Simulated scan of single mutants.
Amino acid sequence: MPLDQTLNSLGFAKPPAQTRVVVAMSGGVDSSVVAAQLAEEGYDVVGVTLQLYDHGAALAKKGACCAGRDIHDARRVAEEMGFPHYVLDYENTFREAVMDEFADSYLAGATPVPCIRCNERVKFKDLLETARDLDADCMATGHYIQRKMGAQGAELHCAADAAKDQSYFLFSTTPEQLDYLRFPLGHLKSKEETRALAAKYGLSVADKPDSQDICFVPNGNYAAVIEKLRPGAAEPGDIVDTDGRVLGQHNGVIHYTIGQRRGLGIGGLADPLYVVKLDVAARQVIVGPKDLLATRKVPLREINWLGDGGFLAGGTRQIAVKCRSTKPPTDAILRPISDTEAEIELLVAEEGISPGQACVFYDPDSTRVLGGGWIWRGY
């Protein structure tokens, strides 16, 4: 790079006007601010919104992303800021890559995280390829996470605002994708700063509420969605204790998750009981005392490694991990088994770890995200 060329804010050695960036716009305030900020800085911005499901169908809900009102809001922001905006129909892709697996995982007794699969299989795969087809230099999103340049290339780091950090949902981002992605909001200290920027740019979405829960699950009712996607798949069975004694009946294992205490319908017992296992083949919900939920060994597969060097070459190492999005990282030992499999040993046992959830790796001495994997069997 010539000495007189400095990098622009997206890391390219050319003027913003000569830098094309595709912004993934969900219609919410975060991605709208990213698009508006880059447009104001003079970048060649192209907004793209994915319609992921039929906003008129029963699965959609008010306040969810990527359908209905949100598409309109994204288009309006583009008009306000004067850059082109496109809506791409990804309904079939989203159903096949995300919703079908969500339903099948629940029917198999797991607790999936579809937001991770959506980022992995749709937004950072198909949409990213669309950005390349549009000759964009990079793709920007409104995720709260940071991309920093390290000695060996781009690194993924937690957001400056721990309360908004989305690293758990982005652990499967590959090094190749990370080279192309940009996250302009990751350095902000609070969501209030984002809303202040939206007000500064005069955006119509400045006061729009954040979307909640999974976008295609109305009111958090997972079972209703699964029954719609897989009619008749939920079969009744017994609620049993760890000795096999029948304590009650259920209307399908999809109504239960590991660690659940409320809504079991087996009152009158001296001590509280929790769901400790789901036996899909026997159609049994197995309950027991809380101490049976604690575990220290967590088997993983589909490992995505973002640390320096090879995953296997590094051998056993001490890291920090999250086995749930809502918990802070905790100390653990990482033991690689193959390029795609590993075992985590938690230094302090955790309760309610469930197959289908993600386990995300962190550098214990910095904010860097080292990758992660999927929890794949019960204990």
Rank of each mutant, 00 (worst) to 15 (best):
E79A: 15
A110W: 11
D89G: 06
R117N: 09
R76F: 09
C115W: 00
P84A: 13
A110Q: 13
V122N: 00
L128V: 08
V113F: 01
P114R: 03
E101S: 11
G109L: 10
D104N: 14
E120V: 01
Y86G: 06
D100V: 10
L128Y: 02
L127E: 08
R117L: 13
D89Y: 05
Y86F: 14
T111R: 06
D100P: 00
L107D: 04
E79Y: 07
F94A: 05
A103P: 04
F83S: 09
I116H: 00
S105L: 14
D126T: 13
L107R: 03
E101G: 07
V122G: 00
F83W: 08
R121A: 01
R75I: 10
G82R: 04
N119K: 15
R76S: 10
I116G: 02
E80Q: 15
V113N: 07
D89P: 03
K125T: 12
C115N: 06
V113Q: 10
V87T: 15
A78K: 04
Y106N: 11
H85T: 12
N119M: 04
A108F: 02
C118R: 00
D100F: 02
V98L: 04
D89Q: 07
D126H: 13
N92Y: 11
V98N: 01
R117K: 10
T111M: 12
R121D: 00
L128I: 05
L128S: 05
L88T: 14
F102N: 08
P112T: 06
K123D: 00
A97M: 13
R121C: 02
E120S: 05
H85G: 11
R95I: 08
I116Q: 00
L107N: 06
L107G: 03
E101D: 13
